[in-house]
């Protein structure tokens, strides 16, 4: 008995790993094919794409730094998805988190660590509330969270754009941007000269805590129960209404945290549209990781690698950044189709 069991768990693991590797491989092949089609100097392009992100400590650090908000956002998505909720309003929630942090930092200059904590808490509160609203709307009136998160996010983006362009704009620069936060708010750089900072540690902690929460706590267990089969969860006495709201709150708060850390660690000011794509990309990372916290770190790094590769290829050869979108689209397509398949199979097995 025991032996069979171990064997099969291992086999499961190998199989799912194999599936992911196959997807990664396929998308890399597509990428190379695209470069051959689009570039006049395909070999240079390929070299700069794959090697570029590793060319210096600076490049490596920045690549990892880019993965940080994605990973944090993805943890939030994973919590929402595992409980059967949807939060696709990441774009707005990240952006809002960034602006709130900036405002707090500008309002409380020189507060240092306390200020940082206040700023992070405020961001999580604001973004978390926005997502909570969507959860509540679904709980109360069965309004689709898919739609409300998305629409709310669009509104928020416009509001933040306005705030950045008018009340908080820094007249000293040509960018549409707020003023820079003072250096007491800058997170500690851990790999100079790159921008990699201790936000990385926060991301790792988030992943670890989310993993323990999901698999080792009663609340996490109930959350997964509701996501797997709400009918069963209700039968088992789980307060399913709580789990339409709580995971949304958590995912919103984590998006907010991602945005806030991007400001304090990397950008130091809210520049109009600076976070565009972060929300969607975090969703993609969560999908690649199949909503398993432990898989989010490699997924986020892979994603950041593709992004950095495309930037480097764009810089050193004649391809454009859009090449990254091709890879992302291929991955997205393959992953989501296999997820759909799994959902279909899961319902049909027995």
């Amino acid at each position: 008995m025991r032996k069979i069991e171990r064997f099969s768990v291992l086999e499961y693991f190998v199989r799912s790993l194999f599936g992911i590797l196959a997807i990664v491989l396929l998308s890399v092949i597509m990428l190379i094919a695209a470069i051959f089609l689009l570039s006049d100097q395909p070999l240079t392009s390929i070299a700069s794409f794959f090697a570029g992100p590793f060319s210096s400590l600076y490049a490596i650090g920045n690549m990892i730094d880019h993965a940080v908000p994605l990973a944090i956002g993805a943890v939030g998505i994973a919590l929402a998805m595992r409980s059967g909720n949807m939060n696709i309003g990441g774009e707005g929630q990240v952006y809002a988190g960034a602006l709130v942090t900036t405002i707090v930092a500008l309002a409380l200059p020189g507060w240092g660590l306390t200020g940082i904590l206040v700023a992070l808490a405020a961001s999580m509160l604001v973004s978390g509330s926005v997502a909570t609203l969507s959860g509540w709307l679904r709980e109360r009136w069965n309004v689709s969270d898919l739609i409300t998160t998305f629409l709310l996010s669009n509104i928020i983006i416009l509001v933040v754009d306005y705030m950045v362009a008018y009340p908080f704009v820094d007249p000293q620069t040509n960018l549409i941007s707020t003023r820079f936060v003072d250096p007491s708010y800058h997170l500690l750089i851990i790999l100079p000269p790159s921008q990699l900072n201790i936000a990385l540690c926060i991301a790792l902690v988030c992943v670890l805590v989310a993993h323990l929460f999901l698999y080792r706590s009663r609340t996490g267990f109930e959350l997964r129960m509701v996501g797997d089969n709400e009918e069963f969860a209700r039968y088992a006495g789980v307060d399913h209404r709580l789990y339409r709201i709580l995971p949304m709150t958590l995912s919103g708060a984590l998006y907010g945290l991602g945005g806030a850390l991007a400001i304090l660690g990397t950008y130091h000011a809210t520049i109009k549209g600076f976070s565009a794509g972060m929300g969607w990309n975090a969703l993609l990372v969560a999908l690649i990781a199949r909503f398993k916290p432990a898989a989010i770190i490699p997924a986020a790094l892979f994603f950041a690698y593709i992004d950095a590769g495309a930037r480097s290829a764009m810089f050193y050869s004649d391809v454009t950044y859009e090449i990254a979108y091709i890879v992302q689209a291929v991955i997205f397509f393959l992953i989501s189709s296999s997820i759909l398949q799994r959902i279909a199979l899961g319902r049909r097995r027995v």
């Binding site: 323990l212 080792r216 706590s217 009663r218 267990f221 129960m225 009918e231 039968y235 097995r349």
Partner: peptide, 30 residues
């Protein structure tokens, strides 16, 4: 039994403890 009594995609063990959550997760269980 299939949709109310259990969660098909979850492990047998998770199904077994689903109605004794307090006992097995008080509230954490490493």
């Amino acid at each position: 039994r299939l949709f109310t009594g259990c969660s098909l995609s979850a492990k047998v063990s998770d199904n077994v403890i689903a109605t004794s959550r307090k006992r097995f997760f008080p509230p954490f269980n490493v």
